[in-house]
Design a protein around this nucleic acid. Structure first.
Lengths: 220, 220
DNA sequence: TGTGCAGGAATATTCGAATATCTGTTGAAC
DNA sequence: GTTCAACAGATATTCGAATATTCCTGCACA
């Protein structure tokens, strides 16, 4: 790679910063000063600033004008609020998807589930960590689940909330051995294919509440 | 005012641009080029850019990287999508407000309703226009209605959707003489104070659907 | 000891120029 | 006549410096 001195694009910095936030490189509450960030991501202040602005709208960082940006503060109350809202919104989207999803939606969903099922969840490290490829397969599955919903505004809301939720989930890379995550996903798939909206939304709610409970424990 | 040559703040440009978008100064689909915007708002590209970025997240403008920004395209489909989503989300928030709102909430709500009731809706122009002070009293009333909801994430979603809806509503400054808007607001107030969530959400739904229908007609 | 007020260091914000990218047009080759 | 390349003008994007604001430290004064 012969000295690819690229200019920093906002897209790239935004993605990198977002990844660092979600994976906990910058812990909650930490001040995000421009100088270090420019250094770390090889960009100028303008680019960093715009990335931060976007992340603020997505709820990953917060800012006070003239003071600066900081990583979003987390709390049990906020987690509970977020979880409930997320369940409410995703439930609406899922119900809509189940009612309106076509054969393409079903097919993509089955495909996404297959990949998730066949991807190992934990790494070989000690303590074991959630594998990156499992993480992305997981996100892709939940995306596919909602993809049948044609209401773009609703999907937009759901996506924002998911990002914020991801923030919490990664914060506490906790694994609960007793939990049958694969089974939960299988159940969601089956209910969706059976077009059983009540059952699917019930499972979705449980799925998120269980995850939230784990994160809550880790937080306290 | 002795030559107050202020630097342009992002806050100010964002607010001004948002107001211009909502009131239709820049029609939907119009390209928003930097040079004219900088001129109009007396700011440099950086601040205009950040304002546009924020408005994009709020759904008022859309952008394609490296191409530029434009005023959000409107369509009947998008309006319907938005309206439904807004009803769904606000319904959740209203229900929560009615269940959890305290005496302060009630008091503020009564106050907001009083101001709305005592403000004239239409100007003396021909054709009559919605008066600015009525508009703000109207927004304030709907804000007060949801303010009892303590779920911040849910409120954030509702606020974003309201902004986008406002965009449509102002787009078509249509007035329907037969409609008893004041009565609709009175009904909402009464149901909220009576803590009748079912009735209140039903009224809210009708209120928005009626507005959407008018906008839809104007759009076609 | 406490309070308030410089003054300077640290930091965010804004600016305008430099750079990269896109878009449309012209002209040559086929 | 059509296609493609090269150029030029328009425009978005990025940069780094200039400016404004906040924060901190130390000193005078009560």
């Amino acid at each position: 790679m012969p000295e690819t001195k690229q200019r920093a694009t906002i897209e790239a910095v935004h993605a990198a910063l977002r990844a660092d936030l979600i994976t906990g490189v910058h812990p909650p509450g930490e001040r995000l000063k421009f100088a270090p960030l420019c250094e770390r991501y090889g960009a100028s202040v303008s680019v960093v600033r715009e990335a931060l602005t976007r992340l603020e709208q997505q709820g990953l960082v917060e800012s006070e004008p003239r003071i600066g940006f900081r990583v979003r503060q987390v709390s049990v109350e906020d987690l509970d609020d977020l979880t409930e809202t997320r369940i409410d919104v995703e439930t609406l989207a899922l119900r809509h998807a189940i009612e309106h999803g076509d054969i393409d939606w079903e097919t993509a969903l089955v495909a996404a589930h297959h990949r998730l099922e066949r991807t190992a969840m934990l790494s070989d490290d000690d303590p074991p960590q959630l594998r990156d490829d499992w993480e992305s397969a997981h996100v892709a599955f939940h995306d596919a689940l909602l993809a049948g919903c044609t209401r773009r505004w609703l999907l937009g809301m759901a996506r924002t909330l998911r990002d914020a939720g991801e923030f919490y989930r990664r914060l506490s890379q906790v694994h609960e051995p007793d939990r049958d995550v694969a089974g939960e996903h299988r159940g969601l798939l089956d209910a969706a294919l059976a077009r059983d909206a009540d059952e699917a939304t019930r499972l979705l709610r449980e799925h998120y509440e269980r995850t939230a409970a784990i994160v809550r424990d880790a937080l306290e």
